[in-house]
Computed example of a mutant assay.
Amino acid sequence: MYFTEADEFLEICTYNTELKNRLAAFAEKYPTGCRQLDDDGNGCKTFEVRKGRFSFRLTPPYSEERKQAASALAKKNIENLRRTTK
């Protein structure tokens, strides 16, 4: 992702298929807010997205306590997670 404070748009270059598909769909629906700039033919696509339309978040790593609580909950509810064929 490339941008400067002065630019109105940011540039996103990605190989991630899910992100490419989401950006392409967004560009089709909102052409004034997003457009594809380049497709290198090797799997990377570059999009230009208006600032304020794209966000990302940083999340801290889970604490050991949280990991253990999630594991215990999953183990307690394992039957709900298994697929049953009837």
Rank of each mutant, 00 (worst) to 15 (best):
K45T: 13
P61Y: 00
I12E: 02
A74T: 04
G43W: 02
A69W: 05
D40N: 15
Y62L: 14
V49H: 01
T32H: 02
E28A: 14
D38H: 11
R57E: 15
R35H: 15
K29Q: 15
I78F: 14
R57S: 13
T4W: 07
Y62M: 06
G41S: 05
R83I: 12
R35C: 11
K67F: 05
C44K: 14
Q68L: 15
C13F: 02
L37P: 02
A25K: 13
D7M: 03
T17C: 01
D7K: 08
N16V: 09
F47S: 01
R57I: 13
Y15G: 03
G43I: 05
K86N: 09
K76N: 05
L58H: 08
G52S: 04
A24F: 03
P60F: 12
F9H: 03
T14N: 08
C13M: 06
D7P: 00
E64C: 06
N80V: 04
G33Y: 13
T84F: 12
T85K: 13
N16F: 07
A25Q: 11
N80P: 01
N80F: 12
D7Q: 08
E64Y: 11
E11W: 02
R22K: 15
R83N: 13
F47T: 07
D7A: 12
E18H: 04
S71Y: 11
E8I: 03
R66S: 05
E28N: 14
L81M: 14
A70E: 10
Q68W: 01
T59H: 08
K51H: 06
L10N: 03
D7Y: 00
Y15R: 13
T14P: 06
R53L: 14
E48L: 10
A25P: 00
E18I: 08
E65W: 11
C13E: 13
K67I: 15
I12P: 01
F9I: 00
K75A: 11
Y2K: 08
D38M: 09
C34D: 04
K76A: 09
R82Y: 03
A69F: 04
N16M: 04
K67G: 00
F47R: 00
G33Q: 11
K29M: 11
T46C: 01
I12T: 01
E28V: 02
D38C: 04
E79G: 08
Q68F: 02
K67A: 06
N21C: 05
F56E: 09
C13H: 09
A69D: 12
S63W: 01
T17F: 07
N77K: 11
